[in-house]
Design a protein around this nucleic acid. Structure first.
Lengths: 203, 203
DNA sequence: AAACGTTTTAAACGACGTTTAAAACTAAAT
DNA sequence: ATTTAGTTTTAAACGTCGTTTAAAACGTTT
């Protein structure tokens, strides 16, 4: 240990703030160093590369937010309730963390190949328990038979994509920021209803 | 006119190919110039900037592919058929044009800055006719009442998002490229069914 | 063949992420 | 108290990026 034991944290915090504010690509290492009040080279000393700094920040952010989602998905809660809760919590999480959304967008755009290497994301989609539940309930005749992979992709799409096209939706409907938030809030009930309707055996 | 009347086209073609192959950000102007067999400065001479070159390529790609989608959306076709056709054609289009997917990802990622391109995309979604149709059919009692904005967002999400998370889906399910194509193909029937089920008045 | 506008070229610019090698510093060993 | 070993910080430079510049090469028209 030496002069400053919080240099790493200073870099981390400054970068987080700048990444959120102007995006990863538009934030230079020199800016980060400046904001953190440290020498340019220290970013590489502590985080090896800007890319790795980004990954570190992103992973810690995902970790902080994903635990509840993972817990819900793997609980032995009743299927319909589980879906309702999962969707609501997921949407709320994305709603409260714009940084998370823009990070995911950045990753999907910049390194779609690399996305599976990110353990933080990968662990979010451990769907074994959920898959089993879908198949069991179908066998019991409680729900219609459905391909679990498709169902999970449907669910993720309905949850996440609206955030990706936020600007498009706002522009098309002349939404203010508040109106878009309201729109997203409505989806907390709408999306589960849509999904559950497709599972109900009735007709 | 002077020495080479197809320099512009050579740049356009080389850039298109490289952008598809390795993404916009990972393609340098020097690479484009190299592949096109032209001097570095000519890219700026003909296209002003790399960003503008990207826009040009993207716009022409969208133009080539969007006409049919717009036509379908604004036709006076019966609602259910229209949805089926729209989804199928859209998925097929994204399936055949990976470049389009990565371009859209690039634009959505920086949607705050890339307003021009956003407008280009936005024009794809003149949903007035479609909205009217949804409201009319609901009034007639043929379908359940639904918020047209939400419904359209649902539809787009189910169509497009799976392409964005392609690598994740492939990794989680150990899909080969062919198997992912098959998975996408299945969605051509699945997605319309899901959407139509949510509209049916029955239960 | 001279003048003009267009296209092409080589070289350089400033900004970027990163590396280097030495300096500054702390902590432990003599 | 001084040397030693290890860590942290620094200034300077590296190579690459997108872009600009000013001159050269060229085709066309007079």
């Amino acid at each position: 240990m030496a002069r400053s034991r919080n240099t790493e944290k200073k870099i981390f915090d400054a970068a987080t703030e700048l990444f959120l504010e102007k995006g990863v690509d538009r934030t230079s290492v020199r800016e980060i160093a400046n904001k953190a009040g440290i020498n340019l080279a220290l970013m590489n000393y502590y985080f090896r590369s800007k890319e790795n700094l980004f990954d570190t920040i992103f992973s810690s952010l995902v970790k902080r937010n994903s635990e509840e989602l993972i817990r819900i998905l793997n609980s032995d809660q009743e299927l319909f309730e589980k879906i309702e809760q999962y969707v609501e919590v997921y949407i709320e999480m994305l709603s409260e963390n714009p940084l998370l959304v823009s990070f995911v967008m950045a990753i999907l755009h910049r390194s779609r190949e690399r996305i599976t290497e990110m353990k933080a994301i990968s662990s979010l989609y451990a769907t074994d328990q959920f898959t089993k539940q879908l198949l069991d309930e179908a066998k019991k005749g409680n729900i219609r038979r459905t391909d679990p992979t498709h169902f999970f992709v449907d669910m993720l799409s309905l949850i996440a994509f609206p955030f990706a096209i936020k600007m498009l939706v706002m522009d098309k409907n002349n939404f203010s920021e508040e109106e878009f938030q309201q729109f997203i809030n409505e989806r907390k009930k709408r999306v589960p209803k849509l999904l559950l309707d497709s599972l109900r055996p009735c007709k």
